[in-house]
């Protein structure tokens, strides 16, 4: 995205990075998208509860600043690989909620034509190579995309999102090593929400910070507060610059928290109610960003309300679109297994 003009930048000299780097309009757009992610997931959750959507889903409510911050400095043709908790990444990278809802409803108008559902949500045209049902499954794929970028000289940067749980899979270690050895334009973003399903990082991971793993692969390891949009976006910006300059990969650890259970069948036995409530009440990424925008004079109450109203309409329209869309014919069961020959 384009930077702000020089005069505007000077007047914001003491503000955090993003307020200097991006225009007020762009920043209001970020708030809009953070709301869009939140309301999309709330809408999906409600549809699930009402039996309109089947299967399961993993909500990223509480992690919106991380998805938005990481994607902020990416260009439209930069690419990402995402995770089972991937709705936020998908929206942050530019997907339309109507086609996401359609996918959740199993319709042909969905991003995966009803074949993938929540866990495989993707938007290849916007550079999202897909969520993934396999923990750490997307990490080496991102390295491969970065290899393509380098060999084909496309200039694309690739971001691989994954959770704290994924850092104990072999694929994580093998992928980081190759990316470093080959100096590939890839950014590894660990969204550390404290738990892999029920297992806290203290019980699963030998190092205190996932970013400490970067040392083993000779790349920078950066820790950010994943609930503060500005912090995440700044780290991502630097990592993108480094990648584009051919200096190789970065590992960013974005420390955050998921408000909801792991999936739709979680009884939250492994964490306390107080812990969840504390994060919701005191560190909600949308509330934090909204307050900053207001304090710095980028938006007022009316502006916020306008965003909320617009988002509510988009969500309602998206669900209507999904409901009205056609379901795939049973006769198409074997479509897309192999590439069709013309």
């Amino acid at each position: 995205m384009a930077g702000a003009s020089k005069a505007v930048v000077d007047s914001r000299a003491n503000l955090p990075f993003v307020y200097r780097q991006y225009s007020p309009e762009q920043l209001r757009g970020v708030l809009h998208k953070m709301y869009l992610i939140r309301r999309f997931e709330e809408g999906a959750e409600e549809c699930y509860t009402r039996g309109l959507i089947h299967g399961t889903m993993h909500l990223s409510i509480g992690q919106e600043a991380s998805a938005m911050g990481v994607c902020m400095p990416l260009a439209e043709d930069d690419q990402i690989t995402s995770t089972h908790r991937g709705h936020g990444h998908c929206i942050a990278k530019g997907a339309e909620v109507s086609r996401m809802f359609a996918e959740f409803f199993g319709k042909t108008t969905g991003y995966c034509k009803g074949r993938g559902g929540s866990m495989h949500i993707a938007d290849v045209a916007k550079g999202n190579l897909g969520a993934n049902g396999i923990v750490a499954g997307g990490i080496p794929i991102a390295v491969g995309a970065a290899l393509s970028s380098k060999r084909m000289k496309t200039g694309k940067v690739v971001v691989s999102f994954f959770g704290d749980g994924a850092n104990n899979e072999g694929a994580f270690h093998e992928a980081l090593n190759m990316a470093a050895v080959w100096k590939l334009p890839v950014i590894f973003v660990c969204e550390n929400n404290g738990y892999g399903m029920s297992t806290s990082t203290a019980r699963s991971t030998a190092v205190k910070n996932i970013a400490d793993r970067a040392a083993a692969y000779a790349m920078p390891g950066v820790i950010v507060n994943g609930n503060i949009f500005s912090e995440v976006a700044e780290a991502s910006f630097k990592a993108v610059e480094r990648a584009r300059a051919g200096e190789g990969p970065t590992l960013i650890e974005s420390k955050t928290y998921r408000h909801r259970g792991h999936s739709k069948s979680d009884r939250n036995r492994y964490r306390t109610k107080e812990e969840i409530e504390d994060w919701m009440a005191n560190r909600d990424p949308i509330a934090l960003f909204e307050t900053e925008l207001r304090d710095f004079g980028f938006i007022d109450g009316q502006g916020i309300q306008a965003i909320r109203d617009a988002v509510a309409r988009e969500i309602a329209d998206g669900i209507e679109f999904a409901k009205a869309s056609p379901a795939p014919e049973i006769t198409t069961l074997q479509d897309y297994v192999y590439t069709e020959h013309a």
Binding site: H54, G55, E103, G106, R115, P328, I330, L333, Q334, V337
Partner: peptide, 16 residues
């Protein structure tokens, strides 16, 4: 099972 991965859509899934 049909010669396909398991699809998400519930009707396709059953038909598989």
């Amino acid at each position: 099972g049909a010669e396909t991965p398991i699809p998400y859509n519930p009707d396709l899934e059953k038909a598989t």
